Simulated scan of single mutants.
Amino acid sequence: MSTTPEVFAPAKLGPLTLRNRVIKAATFEGMTKNALVSDELIAFHRSHAAGGVGMTTVAYCAVAPEGRTERDQIWMRPEALPGLRRLTDAVHAEGAAVSAQIGHAGPVANSRSNRRPALAPSLSVNPQARGLTRAASAADIARITTAHADAAKYAIESGFDAVEIHLGHNYFASSFLSPRINKRKDGFGGPLANRAKVARNVCRAVRDAVGDRIAVTAKFNMDDGVPGGFWLDESLQVASWLEADGTVDALELTAGSSLLNPMYLFRGDAPLREFAAAMPQPMRLGIQLAGKHFLHSYPYEEAYLLDSARQFRAALDLPLILLGGISTRDTMDRAMDEGFEFVAMARALLREPDLLTRMQADRDTPSLCIHCNKCMPTIFSGTHCVLVPAS
């Protein structure tokens, strides 16, 4: 007879043993000037490690220079490795593990700041990508697939314990999954099996590159939150294929499209005024005039992705990481009761990096996060909770 796991007990994730089942979810930090690790980035992840997470996730490590959402993001290359090693050493010194989120932003990439075209399944006009996206060629797809494998090897060299492959939010692999975005007529478009090739091949390339030296997880969209996009019926099938492929040790279940509907992931109020203030002109004016048509507001509730995630739990044996509005011990225990192996937290830990340590001492410790989402625009200046006084 199986017993419900204790969220603060050690747990296996592939070849890795974490000190507990709580993962600091990837939140782009905005602390990587010149696409290199900064002291601020190290301090950010050290604080979460010291605060009690089992593993913290560095977000996000692009696999190629054109795969960045802005020019100062890290992309995995030899010059970045010494700083990444300092970061992993700092996290390990606090007793936590550390994962590198690797991916290619595809149509979400900032072609203007990258000075390279954004790549998508099909040619399209894309304001978020700052212009036209170019349809990725077969050679582009092969190069980006290999780049994921190379990034994973760089992660090992830098001391990371895991990599998280980005298969969500209509980034490169996710955009191929979406029937709304992917209009290709070749072997990467049309039927779901074709649209899933990029995601499956990327995961296979990473697994073949790392073997069992580190854990391999994937951030995976359950649905895009847009009409005609990737939806639960198809995502359940792709998740089943990934499980059968044996390429990932766990899936972190997410939702929404950074390209078309970003607030579908976050829920709660959309901080339009703060986003506008953080943007240069003419984007500031664009958000002021039309932001409400892009940044929708959704009601916030604790564990708001749980209903969808239950369908994956019922269909899969693969370990699953529950994400989305987790900020209390009761919700963590509920996730364990329902068969999820791990939980991922973000906003609550931005407000209180030491929340888990205090929660272990007193399970009734409340989170002070009010889910105002005003932390979201701070990615442009250094991600933080706006309610915490500057030190």
Rank of each mutant, 00 (worst) to 15 (best):
T57A: 02
T57G: 06
V58W: 10
P65E: 09
P65W: 01
E66W: 01
G67Q: 03
E70T: 12
R71K: 14
Q73W: 05
Q73K: 07
I74R: 07
M76N: 05
P78T: 01
E79T: 04
E79M: 03
A80M: 01
L81H: 02
L84W: 02
L87F: 04
T88D: 06
D89F: 04
D89K: 12
A90D: 07
A93P: 01
G95R: 12
A96G: 04
A97V: 11
S99E: 11
Q101D: 09
I102K: 01
H104K: 09
A105H: 09
P107S: 13
V108F: 00
A109P: 08
S111K: 06
S113Y: 00
N114T: 02
R115S: 12
R116N: 05
R116S: 11
P117W: 00
L119S: 07
A120E: 08
L123I: 13
L123H: 15
V125R: 11
V125E: 06
N126P: 04
N126T: 14
Q128G: 02
Q128M: 15
R130P: 01
R130H: 15
L132D: 02
L132W: 10
L132T: 02
A136N: 02
A136I: 01
A138V: 15
I141D: 09
A147R: 11
A149D: 10
D150C: 13
K153L: 15
Y154D: 12
G159M: 05
G159C: 04
F160Y: 11
